[in-house]
Design a protein around this nucleic acid. Structure first.
Lengths: 230, 230
DNA sequence: AATTGCATTATGTCTATACATATAGAATCA
DNA sequence: TGATTCTATATGTATAGACATAATGCAATT
């Protein structure tokens, strides 16, 4: 089937922008004018322009109108995958080894996040994710047991912590940070790489309704890259 | 003012999802039912549900209905900034040094992207971005001169290549890849860091309407991290 | 049993209309 | 002159109604 009409209008206006019909910062015609031009209802133009605004191509203001974005904010949508899916997507077989699982007093930085008394303990886990039996990523994680009580019964030898959480606390929110770090002795050993190897690191903290759930560091084996279009 | 009604409905349904009113994969009531429940028009519920679908919380299908997403695809919106803005956002002063600017035959990998005859030359640039006179990022870039002819007149001592492109070819599209690399001798020198230091690398290629514009590698000085919510 | 066809249904889109709301710019006033 | 109020206007949102479209499942046919 063809495209919806608001999509056509969006594409058409996008093309006109790219062709340079309006210069940066310039006002484009109002919704009423455009709806006459395209022979449709204002709501349809509205939807097309809203889409372009979401993409950061135009800025819309009441009374002022719609103008071409001066400095377009480039946004990339990153899909953050589950490690298992990441591995299986390359046709490799996924496994994981739970190296450490202990209840411990978290370091101050973690305790701050947890917002629990200093005496309380939290669950600490270390996991190695394997692709075709070779190390793929190394994960360290602190977990707030109070927030997810039934986690103590979870079979972490069979299902990875991450996946268990995804299924049990599916609609949490959080933040991520991406960076690069040198492998220390421990991580290098776990990932079967040399000390000082540059590793891609995802640092992620998850909340459910302002209650801390978990914070995790995921060190990817060298060669990993995260891709996105923009 | 308060929130729009469709926003309220979105929040309400989101809360109901998080409260576990429906289990994973379960169908939620149809638009008509919900619109009666909330006392509004179907279009309003539609917009709320479409928003939730965009966020990856529900999946909608014609005839089938709207169901809670089984495995939520976590997506992080990354705002990819201009280096200058990145520096200035921290309150530091931005400068840049153009180290190399030459016309050269690009290596095969770049030539593939360019889709030009092997003999043709392209513009190669190396830039160091500085924050308060200290290295912040190191950039290497190949540029298709044919696609942006008037670039030869651009004053790259005053404005960075990146910003010149943002202003001159504002509505291009492209892709990005994030990874971690060890600093080699040259980059370590440029960034005033040690050899082998892990560096965050953004690899970015830009097109305008299927015409190759530029490809760039941006090596950030150690300590840099890219942050996002999800 | 397998295929085809049809009614049903939930979302997808579009229209016309209406009112809300922010705000730029004009008009007014101190 | 500078602050304030007013008004026109473009976008933002909501509504009811309509038709489009995909897909399910049942019914009729081969």
């Amino acid at each position: 089937m063809a495209m919806a009409s608001y999509q056509h209008i969006r594409e058409s206006i996008l093309a006109r922008i790219q062709a340079g019909e309006w210069s940066l910062g310039e006002l484009i015609p109002g919704e009423v004018k455009l709806s006459k031009e395209y022979g449709c209802a204002r709501a349809t133009v509205n939807r097309a322009l809203r889409a372009l605004a979401d993409e950061g191509l135009v800025i819309r203001k009441r009374k002022e109108g719609t103008r071409i974005c001066r400095t377009r904010v480039r946004q990339a949508k990153l899909y953050i995958p589950i490690v298992r899916e990441q591995v299986e997507a390359t046709g490799q077989k996924y496994h994981h080894n739970l190296i450490t699982q202990k209840s411990a007093k978290p370091p101050p930085s973690i305790r701050n996040l947890l917002q629990i008394p200093t005496s309380t303990k939290a669950l600490y886990l270390e996991t190695v994710h394997l692709a075709d039996e070779r190390p793929f990523a190394y994960e360290t994680r602190w977990l707030n047991v109070d927030a997810v009580p039934n986690i103590l019964q979870a079979p972490f030898d069979r299902i990875s912590v991450n996946e268990w959480l995804v299924q049990s606390v599916p609609f949490s929110n959080g933040d991520v940070a991406f960076s690069a770090v040198n492998a220390d002795q421990e991580i290098a050993a776990a990932l079967d790489t040399r000390i000082d190897q540059a590793l891609f690191l995802i640092d992620r903290t998850t909340w459910l309704d302002d209650v801390f759930i978990t914070t995790m560091k995921l060190f990817y084996k060298d060669g990993f890259q995260l891709y996105s279009e923009l």
